[in-house]
């Protein structure tokens, strides 16, 4: 892994991004509005797709950023593994796209945020240079962590070309349950459920693991088996402290224990002034001409 030379795909991407005019990287456009729409005149750049390297005993997979979530799931699924990037429209959404947006799927409660599944990123910076960060191993403290910087940066600091992701074993059983149990109480009663969703009246619960354990936890929950998760409201997303979810009203689906709330309308986001200045400094430093995804801002909804 981590070849010293770049593939033709990556060299091609670097050339396409170039050094001068504004560009906007394009994935599956499944979360297109996040952070604002790209300004007019920005040239669209697509990244190639394909799994480049996959060794089940390593539990890591290297793929091009244009690979769709469905292709990735198929590629590692055969060996009984997965990368828990369970976002909507997996046939369309690309790995590079969902990482650039940085939003996690609804099983974050158990699997953690998507940033924790990324081990390595190769991106093209504003000067058209290929930059590599991270590596093929699960543990790695070798220099500053530019991978983290890229996840959620909305393509404003660089165009993600290739990534190395951490895989996990597919659970032997994955099942949804629902009912009217108090979701907050469920969270403390059950051991590490994969997801608890709540719309103010109904609670949905995802349990995964050994069938006997899933069954026992389901009994403990008092919920009944049901079809998958509920449809999530589109158009807005709030990020709250998990304990603040209790006060929610109106139309919403909340990820209990996580704090993500799916809404139908956008909500403003806040950040302190010094941190905001630092964010702007980073954008300025990595993209002095403002040519990477102009119009989009990482700290806007």
């Amino acid at each position: 892994m981590l070849p010293r030379e770049f593939s033709r795909d990556l060299l091609g991407l670097a050339e396409e991004v170039g050094t001068e005019d504004p560009v906007t990287p394009l994935g599956g456009s499944t979360q297109w509005e996040v952070g604002g729409l790209p300004g007019p005149g920005a040239r669209e750049v697509r990244v190639a797709s394909g799994i480049l390297e996959y060794e089940p005993a390593e539990m890591t997979v290297r793929c091009l950023a244009g690979t769709t979530l469905a292709e990735l799931a198929d590629g590692v699924g055969e060996a009984g593994q997965m990368v828990p990037l369970d976002l909507p429209q997996p046939q369309k959404a690309t790995v590079g796209g969902v990482l650039a947006v940085g939003r996690s799927g609804i099983r974050r409660l158990h699997y953690g945020p998507i940033r924790d599944h990324v081990l390595g990123v190769t991106f093209v910076d504003a000067a058209g240079e290929l930059i590599r960060s991270g590596g093929p191993t699960v543990k790695n403290v070798s220099g500053f962590d530019l991978c983290r910087l890229m996840v959620g940066s909305l393509g404003t600091l660089g165009v993600i070309g290739e990534v190395i992701l951490r895989c996990m074993p597919l659970p032997s059983l994955s099942a949804w349950y629902c009912g009217s149990a108090d979701p907050f109480e469920l969270r403390s009663r059950l051991f590490s459920p994969s997801s608890i969703l709540w719309d103010g009246s109904t609670t949905w619960l995802c349990l995964e693991g050994h069938p006997a354990d899933v069954e026992a936890q389901a009994r403990l929950s008092g919920l009944r088996p049901c079809e998958g998760p509920p449809p999530l409201p589109q158009g807005g997303r709030a990020s709250l402290r998990p304990s603040d979810l209790k006060t929610l009203t109106g139309e919403f689906v909340a990820e209990v224990g996580v704090g993500v709330v799916h809404l139908s309308e956008a909500v403003p986001r806040l950040t302190d002034e010094r941190t905001l200045a630092l964010q702007k400094q980073i954008k300025q430093s990595f993209d002095p001409a403002g040519r990477l995804n102009p119009g989009r801002t990482a700290w806007l909804p």
């Binding site: 939003r103 940033r115 403290v141 500053f144 962590d145 704090g259 993500v260 941190t275 700290w299």
Partner: peptide, 25 residues
């Protein structure tokens, strides 16, 4: 010498993941 908060107790703090960058620096 200035003070800032990086990351947050909410799941998706706005902007770049400065928390993630700071850890291991």
């Amino acid at each position: 010498g200035s003070l800032a908060q990086l990351g947050g107790l909410d799941p998706e703090p706005a902007g770049y993941d400065l928390r993630g960058v700071f850890v291991g620096s």
